[in-house]
Design a protein around this nucleic acid. Structure first.
Lengths: 216, 216
DNA sequence: ACCTGAACACCGTTCAAGT
DNA sequence: ACCTGAACACCGTTCAAGT
């Protein structure tokens, strides 16, 4: 603001904010593989090493990026019924992660956290409590649905990658389609519908909630 | 066996089998990151490019490796009760994958497949059918538990990686420990026991089965 | 204080040449 | 037919030097 606090030395041309901005652009348009330190530097017309003055390493860049995305999330409208609230909250989380697939890999390394997302965790725990679970049960329930959610997204993302990269007909799908009805009748039975109906987050979510919240 | 079928040209010094053998050694001892084409070549005292005569690319090497592990699995003893059978089967799959963490990443790209593991899929589907599900329901149930299993393992593997690499106290765990009881009381409530009780495959598995198999 | 240039120690993979 | 050597097009990151 005023130049009494101006620092000594060469003035900064780059800033952490500018770095994160282009990093986000790169990752949203080109995916996580496109995000390299060199690519970030190039978009800023600087040398790769200039980045390291503003960010410790690539891992830190990813965590900062994560919090940036989390901060832009608008909180969804929540219904009064706690079971319905859980559906809305988890579906919200699922959809946001599906929209930013690169986040999943970064996030898997720890539990869902970052201070700009704690409200979501709190809401989920509160909803579980409102369903009649104890604090301990609510924690276990949260972790379980989180694990399921990561699984759904990890598989979907990995499949999108392998099927788009090359055009092999998924190899696995082909194998199941060729299943021998004599050896593996149950597999052969629905080999036809196997490839479809993969986007079934709701199905598993409901089953999981049924099991976690033992309704009377 | 006899030299009437001997081929023309320079005799092969390498073989796909030898390549897969050292590749497996490398991956089991050093993890998936240690498995590079160059490392395989070095152990065989050959040039990196010699590998490509026996394997199309690294992806194919991984898939071949996968089938090799699958082929060595011994089938577990199965109880008569279908619900118990499901527990044993999924626990078996979970434990085998946990013992070979590198497999999880390769496997996430498609559904569980590879002809040497189809028996497991078949057994699981049969057990779901024996629990009273329709063929369609059994397929959906299989996918759901598979997604959950991938999630559990993905998170555990990623956490093991980040916590061993550096020694940051998980960053996320630290944040949860510092949760403000005023803002996020539910989180603060069990912040203490958060780090423990993470190896809870059975808990989620049972909840999921409860939800999937609507018992009378 | 901030940025650059050259370099290190890696990758997977292609291509032309040797045996 | 099989293998080698050199090279290409990449990575993240360190280190010493410039402004």
């Amino acid at each position: 603001m005023n130049d009494s606090v101006r620092r000594r030395g060469r003035p900064a041309r780059l800033s952490q904010d500018a770095i994160l901005l282009v990093a986000q652009e790169i990752v949203e348009s080109g995916g996580i593989d496109a995000l390299t330190m060199r690519a970030v530097a190039e978009r800023l017309s600087s040398s790769p090493m200039a980045i390291y003055r503003h960010v410790r390493d690539k891992d830190e860049l990813l965590l900062l990026l994560l919090d940036r995305v989390a901060a832009t999330l608008e909180r969804p409208e929540l219904p009064a019924d706690p079971r319905q609230r859980l559906i809305v909250l988890w579906r919200f989380l699922h959809d946001e992660l599906a929209a930013h697939p690169w986040v999943v890999g970064v996030l898997a390394g720890g539990d869902l956290a970052g201070r700009s997302i704690l409200w979501l965790v709190e809401e989920i725990l509160q909803a579980f409590l409102a369903c009649g679970l104890t604090a301990e049960q609510a924690g276990a329930a949260y972790r379980t649905v989180w694990q399921y959610t990561v699984g759904v997204l990890t598989i979907r993302i990995a499949m999108a990658r392998t099927t788009s990269d090359l055009d092999r007909p998924t190899f696995q799908t082909a194998m199941i389609a060729a299943a021998d009805p004599g050896q593996t009748p149950a597999i052969a039975a629905f080999a036809g519908e196997w490839p479809h109906a993969f986007d079934n987050y709701d199905f598993g979510l409901n089953a999981l909630l049924d099991g976690l919240i033992r309704r009377p």
